[in-house]
Amino acid sequence: MSTTRACPPPDGPGPEAGDAASAGSPAPAEAARSLSLVGVGGAVPLSRDFTRQALYDWGWLPARSADHRAAAEDVLLVVSELVTNACLHADGPEELCVSRSGKTLRLEVSDLGAGSPAPRTPHRAGRPGGHGMFIVQRLCLDWGVVRRSGGVGKTVWAELAGPS
Rank of each mutant, 00 (worst) to 15 (best):
V146G: 03
V40S: 07
A23Q: 14
V146P: 00
L160R: 01
G24R: 07
T3H: 04
H68Y: 02
V75H: 00
T104R: 10
E159Q: 12
G129R: 13
S36F: 04
R127I: 09
V145Q: 06
A63D: 06
G24N: 10
E16L: 12
S2K: 09
R148I: 13
G132M: 04
L61S: 05
R33D: 12
A158R: 01
G162V: 08
G92D: 07
L76N: 02
D91Q: 13
A161D: 12
S164R: 15
P45I: 13
G39E: 11
G42P: 05
F134W: 09
Q137R: 09
V152D: 12
T104N: 06
T155F: 03
A63P: 06
R48M: 12
A161S: 15
R127C: 05
P45G: 09
R100L: 11
A86C: 11
P26C: 10
P13S: 06
V145G: 04
H68T: 10
W143F: 12
T51N: 02
H89G: 02
S116H: 06
D67Y: 05
R124Y: 02
R33T: 13
A43T: 12
H89L: 08
T3E: 15
S101H: 07
G24V: 05
L112Q: 11
S164Q: 12
V75L: 06
E159K: 08
N85M: 09
G24F: 05
P28K: 05
F50D: 06
P122E: 05
S34Y: 04
R52T: 13
S65K: 04
D111Q: 04
G162D: 15
W143Q: 02
P15W: 02
T3Q: 07
V156T: 11
L77K: 01
A32K: 12
E81Y: 01
C7V: 13
V145Y: 02
D49A: 14
P8F: 02
P15A: 14
S101T: 13
G113D: 06
G14R: 01
V156I: 14
A66E: 15
S99E: 03
A54D: 03
A118E: 14
G59W: 00
L82E: 03
G144A: 10
G102W: 05
V152Y: 01
L88N: 13
Q53A: 15
E94V: 15
P26W: 12
S164N: 09
P128L: 08
A31M: 10
A72P: 00
A17L: 08
P117Y: 07
G130W: 00
T104A: 14
G153V: 11
G129V: 09
S116T: 15
C140T: 14
S47K: 02
T3C: 05
R33E: 11
P128C: 06
C87E: 15
T51H: 01
P117V: 07
R138M: 08
S149R: 14
E30V: 12
N85I: 09
P28R: 10
H68G: 14
C140K: 00
R100P: 07
V79I: 07
C97P: 00
R100K: 14
V44K: 07
